[in-house]
Amino acid sequence: MTASGEPSHVTASHRIDVTVNGRARSIDVAPHHTLLEVLRDDLGLTGTKECCLVGECGACTVLVDDVSVDSCLMFALEADGSSVTTVEGLATGGRLHRLQQAFLDTGAVQCGFCIPGQLIAAQALLADTPNPSRAEVEDGLAGNLCRCAGYEQIIEAVLAAASVTDRPGEPATTEMPARTPATGDRASTPDASVAPQ
């Protein structure tokens, strides 16, 4: 019996094979441990944050096979055979990812806690929609809360990063184009929010 009073076979760990930020890993995980817990506690990748644990805040967002997910709502076992990207995997070759650079340049980082999740959600958005509208950025990041309420700068940063064209071998740039200040033309809240866009 274990400390929790369960028969030992219940808590038996399972071996999973995952590629994390490009590195193949073989890890023994308990069935009830989430991907978030394994990333943080077993692999030491603490960039991914634990916060609401109910899928509302997005601080734990990671990519699993290039799809954004809340890692608090996925068991590590479910990632068996997958490729996982965390915020630690964004920068390459000692250079910041263009999104990270844009967040810095735009002043989008206040306390910083939500930023890893924002960056990963933004990365997923730009992979699907390389030149998003402001509304598409708002929708794409709707699952990532910022309690500093730095949304304006975060949206600006994502739009700025989208306008940066990757050059071969240069995933990041420090040259950010000047952007027109936000005009405050945000669409008013619709009553029927699922009307066609």
């Binding site: 899928g55 509302e56 997005g58 967002t61 799809v67 954004s68 997910v69 809340d70 709502l73 996925m74 959600a121 997923a124 958005l125 929708d139 794409g140 709707a142 699952g143 990532n144 929010s193 699922v194 066609p196």
Partner: peptide
């Protein structure tokens, strides 16, 4: 399609 598009967030809808 419209109902599915407003369930949770992008991350939730992906799972």
């Amino acid at each position: 399609a419209e109902g599915a598009a407003v369930v949770g967030s992008v991350q939730i809808r992906n799972r």
